[in-house]
Design a protein around this nucleic acid. Structure first.
Length: 555
DNA sequence: GTTAGGG
DNA sequence: CCCTAAC
């Protein structure tokens, strides 16, 4: 029986302390939980920060726990057969099912743990801020909503459930759902706290002492509709079924009030939730494409998943669990980079007239989805570093814009840098050893050339590429090219699906221009940037470079 | 002289 | 980027 506290940010130390402390208190409570996750009731403020729960909130939770205790007592006494109720493990089962249905693993795991935890007579916190759907299962395990609100042709088991309920109705006077009192229309907004509590009881079959109207309404709504659509607080109960009433009723107090607090609470849940589990971000990745820019769609906050915050992204990148992170990224990568063939086609074509546009014009390459870019903080602290490798591939979102700005700066710098050289950066020869002789950031044009070169001559023909494509870049040796290419590959999470592996290994490595799409995407990004950079850059550079290969070669 | 890879 | 081993 561990006390369930909660993770606040990544204060792992604290967490560990907590665990240690708990173990001291309950030496026998080690349990089978491999890596105990500890919770503390928190909420997320507008800035996405975690804030310790207020007393009230804690109270609400404790109340809830009391309910659970009561419930458990009842259960054990009555031998109630309602699923999930007689035995906590049923909860586990249910959760496992959920897991197999694709719910974020972490969450499931957490929930599973929670359901494993027996209510502690002593003060105990439980995590309330879970996703609504799961909250229902967690906080009101008494009811199998799907079964209780069965419609006509329900499954056998459902019927059994109901039968059980009726048969045991004599036992529990008040501890089971009683929908008889939920007939007709219910205007949650019009109900008093007490009435809400009644409704709650009718819904979940247990009493609650929570007095928070919002909370009650939410729980009830979730419980009855089995969804987290709070857009309406008016329900119609018909034949054991719940029908949500038209949302649009602009009843002053109701919808507006709902609106106001709804996003709050809900977002809190969401954010906290996602903070707690990295896996959640996968939802973001898939769902949260740039369409979310639409203010309209944002209204349906319940269905739209918010784009992860920058901070979240960073934390994720930095992530403790490199594994899941990597997986996540790469899997996304595959998704996004999934048009290599298209890209490849175009690449090798522009033989001479490389003006950088062939990269720019490509819409198809454009934002095909939002990804959580891998932004390393470490990297960020070194803005001058070759940013190519840092280029997260992303589409139009704030991040994108921000990066654009950054890149623009880069471009300018590089521009002047490149133009003003000849004498390289002969790094301050410092004392004895000069740390990086010529440290030359790769410019867009160079990268483009490289990519092109590889496209034309094949990876590995570095000297050739050097000679033909980098004739005017005396400072780039064939080795440099090779290194750069390698870096590009790495930076692009080179492990493209099977495709690449196949090509690289089976077929001729040099002939088939195996340019990893990610690289092209990166280049494209740069090209986009470049397109918005003062013409001095693009024009001069591209015009000058491409024309002829064997230009002046000052070697 | 080139390439491939490790540092 | 640098250095080297291995072509």
């Amino acid at each position: 029986m561990e006390t369930v506290v909660d993770i606040v940010g990544n204060e792992e130390a604290k967490v560990e302390d907590s665990i240690a402390a708990l173990n001291k208190l309950n030496p026998t409570s080690q349990r089978k939980i491999a890596d105990p996750v500890v919770y503390q009731l928190v909420r997320v403020d507008g800035n996405g920060r975690l804030v310790p729960a207020t007393e009230d909130e804690v109270m609400a939770v404790e109340d809830l726990l009391e309910d659970d205790k009561r419930e458990n007592r009842f259960v054990s006494n009555s031998g109630q057969t309602v699923e999930c109720n007689t035995n906590c493990e049923h909860d586990l089962d249910e959760l496992q099912i959920k897991a197999s249905e694709g719910l974020p693993l972490d969450n499931v795991k957490l929930d599973a743990e929670m359901s494993n935890v027996r209510p502690n007579p002593e003060a105990e916190f439980e995590k309330v801020n879970v996703q609504p759907e799961q909250s229902v299962a967690l906080l009101a395990p008494t009811v199998d909503h799907g079964s209780v609100f069965q419609h006509e042709g329900s499954s056998k088991s459902s019927n059994e459930l109901v039968e059980n309920e009726t048969s045991t109705s004599a036992v529990g006077t008040s501890s089971k759902p009683d929908f008889s009192m939920l007939k007709g229309e219910i205007h949650l907004d019009n109900l008093t706290v007490k009435e809400l509590q009644e409704t709650f009881k009718a819904t979940f079959g247990r009493e609650t002492s929570v007095k928070d109207k919002q909370w009650l309404k939410r729980r009830i709504l979730m419980g009855l509709t089995n969804s987290c659509d709070f857009s309406t607080t008016t329900l119609v109960i018909k034949d054991n079924g719940v029908v949500k009433k038209g949302k649009e009723d602009p009843e002053v107090g109701s919808s507006s009030e709902n609106r106001e607090s709804s996003p709050n609470f809900h977002d809190k849940e969401k954010e906290n939730h996602s903070n707690a589990s990295g896996m959640e971000s996968q939802n973001y990745l898939v769902v949260g494409n740039y369409e979310s820019e639409n203010t309209n769609t944002e209204q349906r906050a319940t269905k739209r998943v918010r784009k992860p915050t920058r901070r979240y992204i960073e934390e994720l990148s930095e992530g403790e669990s490199r594994d899941s992170c990597a997986k996540l990224i790469s899997s996304v990568g595959h998704h996004v980079y999934s048009q290599p063939s298209t890209i490849m086609h175009v690449t090798p074509v522009q033989k001479v007239g490389l003006d950088g546009r062939w990269l720019i014009r490509r819409d198809s390459l454009g934002g095909s989805g939002v990804q959580v870019p891998y932004v390393s903080r470490i990297r960020r602290s070194r803005p001058r570093e070759n940013f190519m490798t840092l280029m997260p591939v992303t589409s139009s979102d704030k991040l994108h814009t921000e990066r654009k700005v950054e890149l623009k700066k880069e471009m300018k710098n590089l521009d002047s840098f490149e133009n003003s050289d000849d004498d390289v950066v002969t790094m301050p020869a410092a004392n004895g050893r000069m740390r990086r002789k010529h440290h030359r950031p790769w410019t867009l044009s160079e990268v483009v050339k490289l990519v092109e070169g590889v496209a034309k001559y094949g990876a590995g023909r570095w000297s050739e590429i050097k000679r033909l494509a980098f004739a005017s870049y005396s400072y780039r040796t064939s080795v440099d090219l090779k290194d750069k290419w390698r870096n590009l590959l790495r930076a692009s999470f080179a492990q493209l699906p099977a495709e690449k592996g196949m090509q690289m290994q089976s077929s001729r490595k040099h002939a088939s221009i195996p340019i990893p799409a990610p690289i092209l995407l990166q280049v494209r990004e740069l090209a986009e940037m470049q397109a918005q950079v003062p013409p001095s850059f693009s024009a001069s550079k591209f015009a000058g470079d491409t024309g002829s290969d064997r230009n002046s070669v000052h070697e």
